[in-house]
Design a protein around this nucleic acid. Structure first.
Lengths: 220, 220, 220, 220
DNA sequence: AATGAATGAGACTTCATTCAT
DNA sequence: CATGAATGAAGTCTCATTCAT
């Protein structure tokens, strides 16, 4: 940058080198996700994060209080994104209970939510006692809300059909949750082996088995 | 423990200073599991491990080459224990396929296998890219063997029954695997909320839904 | 130095916390030379170096990548200094070959080059196989250049005189190199016994013996 | 070893598994030389030494008080060996002074004395301040004795000839010492480049230049 | 005499955090 | 707001020495 230009700047309003606070925070959270995906949560340092963000090392402690705080905010960001995804899908879906339930299922395996990068972060938080604590503290109620909604939808479906398999709506909802987690772990561990679509179909298949009159078995 | 008390102990056999190599290794692996459960894999240091073992800090590098090696050996130990559990259950069970399949399921939720301490270690290895690599390298074929066996058992059951739900044996076996992982994560995350028995029953319930003529729905 | 005193200092310019990178590197190399001289290369730790520099222990890995790299850079620094010393002396000296050759000799025993501190570092590198390897890798061609130049100068002198002692210029140059090293070791081992001047005169005496018509025997 | 044999042993005198003290000490000193040559003095540990000796790690502290003591004894061993070599050569040589002087020179470049292994040890001791101290403490008088003898021999030769080159016998003896060290360093640093024979000839050439009427210039 | 498991001090290195610029 | 040099605590690993067997 030459001097002339710099002087011009001074007379007019100085160009904003400094991005709005939320933009920087977003950049850093994104960089954190990338870093955890690439180096793991243990291999993620202030440097790896700021390198991904193309910023200087001192900036994290400026925008976030500490590394721990950065991680927590990253988790909250993902949780909100995840919640928005399935909750909007649930609201947007058609009127029938089974449509809403399948919309929630599909939201879990959406490319935006279920990328390897983001799965890495989720399971990083599941992998360590102290972070599980944080997770529970921050995310618990979101999970509860989803189970409640899913249970109610299963209830509605069950009431509409003639199912005598002895499964309670709650049990089905909880099995769904376990399937989400188990399939996501599978996607994370063996990326070449399965795909998001196959995982989603596996949940559909489960629901088709449980509610054969309402939900169709996916074609192989 | 103060010295005086130690001297009082002398009537019994004095503790051997140098234990057989395998005993020490076992002690240290046990201490590692305890430490990972309490502090996480990132919070586990040579000190936390040797504190649990009641030994000096230098001993890990003596019996294991490095911290990384200690972790790998710990994983291998758990994998072998897990394999022995389900494989022996599978061999011991009565002759019918459904009995064998249920024995494999139950082995997963045995108290010896499915303790919070040990689940902590499993998910610690799932939580970081480099360690997932190690896991795959060390454990993969054991998992494959189990899926193969489960698939064959499902096949046998399906051939014996009259099931037209459109589920392939392979798909069922893979859903079982996802359920194990998802339920174990659930046990790890919300220890007060579920129990090993409930988790096991949830898998039984799934199998009862899929193979109603062979497997009974567990009583609530 | 206590804090109170430091505050009194404030009238002068306060010391800059962050020095230019090259200044810090220079400080640390100097501290390394001091430390090797005092404690030996084996007794030199990051702590002894940073203590000499008056800086914190973490700074070495910041400016140099590792201890090994610090040592290599220190050797390179000394080699460059040494090379500059004799090469400039060689260029600056009068036109005659004998003047140039003696200038090279004298450069070796200059106070700046031939201090006990710096000799300590040279012989530290000579003292261990792995470090000799490093020395060869980093310094070899400088040594070769000097031998080549010395040989050529001896050649010129011999051609100008009428010497029939059967010594080849190369042999004389190599004997000079051996004398440098042997005398320097002597200076290092018995600092009270010899002096740089006596060592230099001993080389002069050798050359006076070989080229009596060109080089004068030093007075005792 | 079978039980029968073991029992037989007990009745008769037990076989000596334990070598006489001096044999073990010699083994360990030899192993130390080998280890320093291979790994350097810094890379030499109790393990590397006992590995070379084929003995267990605890034995060094048994036969020598400490690692430092082992190193000192190793140096003393080499110094005695070196002294015996040149002193016996000096005694054995013919009656003339020049024969005796050349015998001392040649002793320095004898294959038994001037091996790379042993040179490694000498220069390891030269390379570190604390060890130079030890060297001076242990070896000094041997060196002094040699210089005294060499000086006297040079004196005798000079008195027998008609040399007016202005060199004192002492100066020549000291130049010889510097040449030994410088040439040995050269042999250690560039093993492929020179040989013991060439180094020896270089000293001969020096003496032939100084005492042309008594000592012959070696043929190239 | 000899072994080698165990100890623990101390070394190198990493990295979150601070703060002068 | 942003930078990045500097700090220093804490972690892993090495290894001389000890001592029960």
């Amino acid at each position: 940058m030459n001097k002339e230009f710099k002087q011009q700047e001074r007379e007019s309003k100085p160009a904003r080198r400094t991005e709005p606070k939320e933009v920087r925070r977003g950049q850093l959270i994104d960089a954190t996700i990338n870093s955890i995906a690439k180096y793991g949560i243990g291999g993620t340092t202030m440097s790896t994060v700021t390198d991904f963000a193309g910023l200087s090392i001192g900036i994290v402690n400026f925008h976030f209080k500490s590394k721990q705080n950065l991680f927590e905010e990253t988790l909250i960001y993902l949780a909100r994104e995840h919640h928005a995804q399935w909750y909007n899908a649930y609201l947007d879906a058609g009127l029938s209970a089974q449509e809403k339930l399948l919309a929630i299922v599909d939201a879990h395996f959406d490319r935006k939510i279920c990328s390897r990068k983001k799965l890495s972060v989720w399971f990083a938080f599941y992998g360590e006692a102290r972070r599980r604590e944080i997770y529970r503290h921050l995310i618990d109620q979101i999970d509860d809300e989803r189970i409640t909604i899913s249970t109610r939808l299963c209830q509605e479906i069950a009431e509409n059909g003639d199912y005598k398999n002895g499964l309670s709506p709650k049990q089905i909802a909880e099995t769904l949750e376990a399937l989400y987690d188990g399939l996501m772990l599978n996607l994370l561990m063996y990326p070449g082996y399965t795909t998001r679509e196959k995982a989603r179909d596996q949940v559909h298949a489960y629901l088709a088995t449980v509610f054969p009159n309402h939900i169709e078995m996916p074609k192989p």
